[in-house]
Design a protein around this nucleic acid. Structure first.
Length: 709
DNA sequence: TCCTTCCAG
């Protein structure tokens, strides 16, 4: 039994918050409380027309202001909370005001594919046009637009960056709105920098709208203000434009009461279960959303809550649901199912529910205060998965999930003092400061950015990450010797491929040297997805493992995955999901990998490789495929140690075979391997392992390995 | 003895 935990009285919390929150985030937090809920909500207005609903959105009252700002400034930064209508309305206002009258397009980027598609759907309905005509979208693997007629186009920031490769000035667009810029993904940061560069060349005919949910707007303005946009010639026809200006749009969130622990908890898992039980026994109806760092935590919390609920009479009226990315559509659906009267839904979720997935009807949020984040170590070249305290903006975002449809409450499983202390940084560390930059550097170079150190980044990345990326690209043969220029026979093709450069190199080498594209496309498709297609259903471990033997080969995981994907691709489409169930394979993962490998085949064909070349198989000569994988992954070559771990040739920490690997049993361990990725979780694990012959290293990467060891 | 989340014509 765990000790009872007490929460501060909400009233005390509120008054303390207003008195001594640091002014920096004070405004943000308090804005939840001071929001007048005078704006009627959608359910109360079922009868109102689309046009009436549009007029009720907070964005509507700022329409004139926005249009004026965009007339006079080349960059407008819009700060708007969820529900303000900025993503749906702003592009429409611009369209109505004639910004696309010259045959140009108003683009609006989103960090996520689903958001782009859904917004396009919504806006086409509001405008009464068919999706794909005046309003369209374009994301990877799916689009609906017509270059002739589409005037409002939603796309992912990655797609727009790809469009830059073909049209460096983005001349098809008159306005580009970068939505959700607070996301700070590598793609968003890159896009901001590219747009700043483009603005210098398109002083008067391009407008940029940056929209962000955080109050960090000043930073965006400072960045764009340093652009020399207005400092050039001014004539009557081209009056001087102010550079960047800021506009605020209030949101439609309801007040959320914040509760902190009075004493720190030792274990966020037990604390979160207690919080759920407390809410369930003491609070009125309303669903609960619990934020936890990982899937394991979710499963454990769910089991614990289930047990506690069963042991307490009358508490069985809860419906417990897990939520994380990677669940099937079917599994995700029950998160959205409305509850019958008297039943309370409790969703245990990872970060997906913070931005990607929005669940209606959440009244209570339990926030454990932690998140798992990927961090890349440029010294070892190893990714880590680190559980760490969330940022304050993340805490605000999580809290906001309780106030979408009615006033709510958030229970933070940490103390107010801790929240106020340096433990919670104001913002998340942006991706450019914590991930491998090789893909970004490759794209920037393809766009003609040659001086990567002096490039005008939105936020300059750490030098060691940049030099690691340059070294990696050079070692793969993508750069001219001693020069930061892409090689014409390899580097520029590598930049075309939507892949990590290591995997792209495997693919190009398969086409150019090893003639095994059939399998290489499958291997790279699987590795790009990064998931294990073999599933182990509860209680069927033995059967699943037995069946996996049909695909398993001693050469390792990648070739085993290739066997599974090739077999999947040879199964008639109609039978595939049944075939997957029979063989304990995930049809979702194989379908994704198949889609990626078919898209990559399309790229190769456009590069001039024939369809026959793309279908060329290594047959039973697996060593060709193994060499091909070695040719891209040679920097991740490791040799077996006596304790069963592996070590990189250049030294470094002990690397372990993941228990899910076909090479996990002691007897299966080859002397030498290459792996696709190393990731530190509970231990430092290799992923996507392939057995190799050590003599191949000097053969495929002589510059890296002088001789076999 | 086990992996957070996104994304790329």
């Amino acid at each position: 039994m765990t000790a009872k935990r007490s929460y501060q009285e909400p009233t005390t919390t509120v008054s303390r918050r207003e008195n001594d929150f640091p002014s920096n985030d004070d405004g943000f937090i308090r804005s939840y409380y001071n929001r007048s809920s005078s704006v009627a909500n959608d359910t109360a207005n079922k009868a109102s027309t689309i046009e009436e609903q549009r007029c009720q959105l907070p964005a509507f009252s700022h329409k004139k202001q926005l249009l004026y700002a965009i007339e006079k400034h080349s960059v407008v930064i819009v700060v708007g909370e969820p529900g303000s209508g900025k993503s749906t309305q702003l592009p429409q206002y611009l369209y109505e005001a004639g910004w696309s009258a010259n045959g140009k397009t108003i683009g609006c980027t989103q960090p996520r594919r689903i958001a782009a598609a859904m917004l396009a759907q919504r806006v086409s309905e509001e405008m009464g046009v068919e999706l794909g005509t005046t309003v369209g979208y374009s994301v990877r693997f799916s689009d609906a637009f017509n270059p002739e007629t589409t005037r409002i186009k939603y796309l992912t920031d990655g797609t727009l960056i790809r469009e830059c490769l073909a049209d460096p000035l983005l001349s098809a667009y008159s306005v580009i709105m970068v939505d959700e810029a607070q996301d700070r993904s590598i793609a968003t940061d890159m896009l901001l920098a590219l747009l700043k560069k483009i603005l210098r060349k398109r002083k008067n005919d391009l407008r940029v709208v940056i929209s962000s949910a955080s109050l960090d707007a000043e930073r965006f303005r400072a960045y764009f203000d340093s652009n020399d946009v207005a400092a050039t010639t001014t004539t009557a026809e081209t009056p001087t434009l102010g550079s960047a200006t800021i506009l605020s749009i209030s949101g439609r969130l309801f007040p959320v009461d914040v509760h902190y622990l009075t004493t720190p908890c030792e274990n966020y898992l037990t604390a979160s279960v207690e919080a759920v039980m407390n809410i369930h026994t003491h609070e009125p109806a309303g669903d609960i959303l619990v934020f936890l760092p990982g899937k394991d935590d979710i499963a454990q919390a769910l089991a614990d809550t289930h047990e506690l609920a069963q042991n307490n009479d009358g508490l069985g009226s809860m419906m417990l649901v897990p939520l994380s990315a990677g669940l099937s559509q079917e599994e995700q659906r029950q998160v959205f199912d409305p509850m019958p009267a008297g039943k309370r839904k409790v969703v245990f979720s990872t970060n997906v529910a913070e931005t990607s997935v929005t669940i209606d009807g959440i009244v209570y949020v339990v926030d454990c205060g932690f998140v798992k984040q990927r961090v890349f170590d440029s010294v070892t070249g190893i990714d880590k998965l680190v559980t760490q305290p969330i940022s304050r903006s993340s805490a605000v975002q999580r809290a906001g999930r309780a106030g979408r449809t009615q006033p709510g409450k958030v229970y933070r499983l940490y103390t107010y003092e801790a929240f106020k202390s340096g433990l919670f940084s104001p913002h998340d560390v942006p991706e450019v400061c914590r991930l491998s930059l090789a893909p970004m550097v490759l794209t920037l170079m393809a766009l003609g950015v040659n001086n990567l150190v002096r490039f005008d980044y939105f936020q300059p990345p750490p030098p060691e990450l940049l030099s690691h990326a340059l070294e990696q690209l050079a070692s793969l043969g993508a750069l001219e010797p001693q020069r930061a220029v892409l090689t014409p026979d390899f580097g520029i093709y590598l930049a075309e491929l939507p892949l990590d450069p290591k995997l792209g190199a495997c693919l190009l080498n398969a086409a150019q040297k090893f003639h095994c594209l059939r399998e290489a496309l499958a291997a790279v498709g699987m590795l790009a997805i990064g998931s294990d297609p073999f599933v182990v259903p509860n209680g069927q471990r033995a059967e699943a493992e037995l069946d996996k033997r049909d695909f398993m080969v001693q050469e390792g995981d990648v070739l085993t995955f290739v066997n599974a994907l090739v077999a999947y691709q040879e199964t008639p489409a109609k039978l595939r999901s049944q075939w997957c169930r029979l063989h304990f394979l995930s049809s979702r993962i194989l379908e994704q990998a198949d889609r990626v490998s078919r898209q990559l085949e399309g790229y190769l064909i456009r590069m001039g490789y024939s369809r026959e070349r793309c279908r060329q198989s290594c047959g039973q000569d697996f060593s060709r495929l193994q060499k091909c994988l070695t040719s891209g992954l040679f920097a991740n070559a490791a040799k077996l140690e006596v304790d069963g771990s592996y070590r990189l040739f250049r030294g470094g920490p002990a690397l372990w075979v993941h228990p899910s690997s076909v090479l996990f049993p002691e007897t299966a361990k080859p002397k030498f391997v290459v792996f696709a990725e190393a990731m530190e979780t509970t231990k430092l694990y290799m992923r996507g392992i392939t057995a190799i012959d050590s003599t191949w290293l000097a053969e495929v990467a002589p510059h890296y390995y002088s001789e076999a060891k």
